[in-house]
Computed example of a mutant assay.
Amino acid sequence: MKIGFVGGTGHIGKGLALRWGKGSNHEIFIGSRNESRGREAAEEYSRLLDEAGYEHEISGGDNRFAVENSDVVLVCIPYKSVFETMESLSSVFDDQVLISPVVPMFKSEGQFGCDDCCAALDIDNATPEGVRVVSAFHTVPAKPLYEFDNPLECDVIVCGENDAKMVVFDLIDDIDGMRGLDGGDLSVSRLTEAVTPLLLNVSINNDISHPMIKFISP
């Protein structure tokens, strides 16, 4: 599958690009506002996979390059940049599945919180009609993703319309140890986005490094 990353030079973009980039199942396109930065990031990720002995297909450029070459697009940018970025890319979106791990998060007086909005719904409203938005990966910390040979024993809640969610479930299955769970339609994303600042507060207040979520049935 061809997977593009809008803002693929950041933490979550790097981790997922490395996980999906190892091997020959997927072709990865790293995007950035700055074309040269996108290329540099793709070269860095390629070097890391080369050193680990993996085949890969990773290339970089600007965000338009990443979108127009991909079947699935991840939007890995801060919430404050969502509307401007989506507007600048509206002409190159087609009928891709767009995955949002975006969280409308803030920090105040040493604690993290979430704005009273939903990033996934805002992205859905800001993209052309044929684009199918799915929210996922809000509760996956970046650093464990970088360790791309280590299984990730965690769950990922996925929200959106059913056909698009199936595409995302397949991608989740490609990451060792990760399990995708159906959270419902896109409106439920408001709840899953709010879990990110909760995990960060738990991490800070209890000295727990990189907490993740796993649902257990007794």
Rank of each mutant, 00 (worst) to 15 (best):
D170V: 05
G184Y: 03
D207K: 10
D207P: 13
G183L: 07
L181R: 13
I175P: 02
R190M: 02
L200W: 06
D176E: 13
I216G: 03
T196Q: 08
L191I: 12
D185A: 14
I172H: 05
D170K: 04
S203I: 14
S217I: 15
A194L: 06
L199S: 00
S203V: 14
S187T: 02
N205H: 10
I216Q: 08
I204V: 12
I204R: 11
I208W: 02
I175S: 02
L191V: 07
H210K: 12
S189Q: 07
N206E: 14
V202F: 06
G180F: 00
D170G: 04
G183M: 08
P197Y: 02
N205S: 12
V188P: 10
I213C: 11
K214C: 05
L200F: 04
L186T: 00
N206S: 14
V202L: 13
L171G: 02
A194W: 04
I208L: 13
S217D: 15
L200R: 01
N205T: 07
D182K: 06
D174A: 14
H210P: 07
K214V: 13
A194H: 00
P218M: 07
G180E: 09
I175R: 02
R190D: 09
I213Y: 03
L171V: 09
P211N: 03
I175G: 03
I172V: 09
G177H: 03
M212H: 10
I208S: 05
L171Y: 01
K214S: 12
V202M: 14
G184F: 08
M178C: 07
A194G: 01
F215Y: 09
I216A: 13
S217F: 12
N206Y: 10
M212D: 08
L198R: 00
T196E: 09
I216E: 15
N205Q: 11
G180D: 08
F169G: 05
H210I: 11
A194E: 11
F169S: 01
V195P: 00
L191A: 05
S203M: 09
F215L: 14
P211Y: 08
S209M: 15
V195Y: 02
I175W: 00
F169C: 07
S187G: 04
P197I: 01
D173C: 15
D173K: 08
D173L: 14
I213R: 04
D170P: 09
F169L: 11
V202K: 10
G183V: 11
R179M: 09
L181K: 10
L186P: 01
G183D: 12
D207H: 15
D207E: 15
D185F: 07
G177L: 06
H210M: 11
I172Y: 06
G183C: 08
V195T: 06
F215N: 08
P197K: 05
L198T: 13
R190K: 04
D173Y: 05
S187F: 01
P218Q: 07
V202H: 06
T196P: 00
S189G: 08
